[in-house]
């Protein structure tokens, strides 16, 4: 067992954890942040994406002991109650959600894109979500949702009533 300090969604934690555990296990099994999804366990599908110190990562590929003193954002950190953020709003409005299993990782990938560039091209959006698989939508509406979210951010689009 090892002790580590970690900030998740703006809350500080001190956790004792098995050194064999991965970041995804820490988030799901210990903190019960089950919005972090496990799809492949080998960094292929992106369902377990989280933002680690500002960077989009696959939490299944990172060991828990590697994140000591780090800051992690999961899907649970983007909203407060039903008060959802602009990317989540755009995903609902654009119909970019189907089975929902890729959705948390996809929204965090969108956040990583838009945090750097509020006005990404469709090409840049597709590159930005290239590590996240979706088996339902065919990606078209996800790309539209991220464009819409960019519009909310740079003021060219306003929230639907």
């Amino acid at each position: 067992m090892i002790n580590l300090k970690i900030n998740v969604n703006n809350t500080d934690y001190e956790i004792e954890i098995d050194e064999e555990k991965r970041l995804i296990d820490l988030l799901r099994d210990e903190l019960r942040l089950t919005g972090v999804k496990e799809g492949c366990s080998e960094g292929e599908c992106g369902a377990c994406s989280v933002i680690l110190d500002g960077k989009l990562v696959n939490s299944c590929l990172i060991m828990a002991f590697q994140v000591n003193d780090s800051k992690v954002v999961t899907i649970e950190g983007l909203s407060e109650g039903d008060n959802i953020n602009y990317i989540q709003k755009a995903f609902i409005e654009a119909g970019a959600v189907q089975c929902g299993y890729c959705t948390p990782g996809m929204i965090l990938a969108a956040k990583a894109i838009l945090d750097k560039n509020p006005n990404p091209s469709r090409e840049e959006i597709r590159m930005g979500i290239s590590g996240n698989l979706c088996r339902c939508t065919g990606y078209e509406k996800i790309v539209e949702a991220i464009e819409l979210a960019g519009g909310y951010l740079n003021g060219t689009k306003t929230y639907r009533e």
């Binding site: 089950t34 649970e76 983007l78 909203s79 995903f91 609902i92 409005e93 929902g100 959705t103």
Partner: peptide
Amino acid sequence: NSIDRIDSLAKVTGKAMYPQDYY
């Protein structure tokens, strides 16, 4: 009219439960 999926709010917030999410 376009209507929102009934479960989309739960899904965008990560609250939607799949069997592996029950502890």
